[in-house]
Design a protein around this nucleic acid. Structure first.
Lengths: 241, 241
DNA sequence: ATGAAAGCGCTAACAC
DNA sequence: GTGTTAGCGCTTTCAT
């Protein structure tokens, strides 16, 4: 790997000149510029971003901590993050907690993984990330990000309950409302709903959306049309007249 | 952020001593060791890995280039990579090409994205990754990794056709064979199969697995029991007697 | 057991 | 328009 010093020597100029040219700064003659660029190409010069980052005291990188990147909808969230970061020329440092594989479906009850998260945050900070995104696998209140974190953090798919840490969550109310509205617009009168677990924030919010649209359309809410779902259950809702 | 120099000053020792202690190297008295460790805790000292990487000339990081991280089975592949890397204390630098979103289903026909891949590889090299894993979204022969790459590379879910770049692929033959064997073991005699597109390496290999087990069980291969699938087709196979 | 100092590759202030 | 040099935070050799 050629360094900037070697490149400078090959060109017979100083490192400052090379640095300026490589970073598109003014103050170099067209001739020198051309020479340096060609030489860089020829030597297959690759700038060392690690050195640059150290000098600049910034890394253009953010840490992304995913509770479990294989769970439904999480890859799409991370995909969106990578999309925007690429446009901003930021690199993501992905940390995959694999919580679901470690704790199965119970991880959101245990607090002992908070310590794990703290450690991962520390590692990310050592790598000088400029911010952190925590991607939950299941919408709920999460306290694993220290409130005094010296860099910005945001919580995706979960609630931080801290004014310092914004949350980005799914709009379940509107989503459910749109579905119900669509069905009513089609002329249907009796719309049943199979909810998720009662303690699921998603399930609760969607039910609210359902009820909102019913109310707006002056349709009585019939609890008999609402059943709790789950992979372990059979559900029966009397819809056909 | 406290630096090692500040920490050293607070302890009244040299940076060399602090460095040795922090890295669990011998040659420091128990007293000094205790002092430094406590002080580091108190100052909330966070080592700067960027500086360390520059000095050490290594980063313990590898670049992972995914053709599209939202496509079926890809998150699981990346998940496996993160799992192993964490155990080895390596950081992955994820690059998501989002090929499917950019080119839809035709990207594997065009070569113009090879240039994109080259650029991403260069960016990763500038960040001093020690190796590269390319995760294809669709098994096929891919030539986008330069043969003269100065660091190791491996291709996942695709074939590199280069002796320098190992490929890790799905064992479709065995997978299909296991399924067919299971069905025959259950006493079934007529096993139909819906394949993928004829030019899919996966589909071809699975058909081979199917045929192998048929042969081993002295069952004639009946082309009438094989239909080409696809989301745009209806398939009919006469199985019930 | 501890410290001084060089140097990793780069940027930028300053001098010429 | 170009060059010299300090210094980012760390590790490591070599003194002491």
């Amino acid at each position: 790997m050629a360094t900037i010093k070697e490149l400078a020597k090959c060109c017979g100029v100083s490192v400052a000149t090379v640095s300026n040219i490589l970073n598109n700064k003014p103050g170099a003659s067209a001739k020198t510029r051309k020479l340096v660029l060609e030489m860089a190409e020829q030597l297959n010069y690759t700038p060392n971003i690690v050195a640059k980052n150290l000098k600049m005291q910034k890394t253009r990188s953010i840490g992304v901590i995913a509770e479990d990147m294989t769970i439904f909808s999480i890859p799409d969230i991370i995909d969106g993050i990578t999309d925007y970061c690429q446009k901003q020329e930021y690199q993501i440092l992905l940390t995959n907690l694999r919580l679901f594989k470690k704790y199965n479906d119970t991880y959101y009850n245990k607090d002992d993984y908070y310590e794990l998260v703290r450690q991962e945050i520390k590692k990310l900070m050592e790598k000088q990330v400029e911010g952190i995104i925590y991607v939950a696998a299941h919408e709920r209140v999460i306290h694993c990000i220290p409130d005094n974190l010296p860099i910005p953090a945001v919580m995706a798919y979960g609630y931080s309950k801290s004014s310092k840490i914004p949350s980005v969550v799914v709009d379940d109310v509107s989503g459910a409302a749109a579905i119900v509205k669509y069905l009513l617009d089609q002329g249907h009168k009796k719309v049943g709903v199979i909810t998720g677990k009662p303690d699921s924030l998603h399930a609760q919010a969607r039910l609210v959306g359902y009820q909102q649209v019913l109310f707006q359309n002056k349709i009585l809410y019939d609890p008999g049309l609402v059943a709790e779902g789950g992979l372990d259950k059979r559900v029966r809702i009397p819809l056909r007249r």
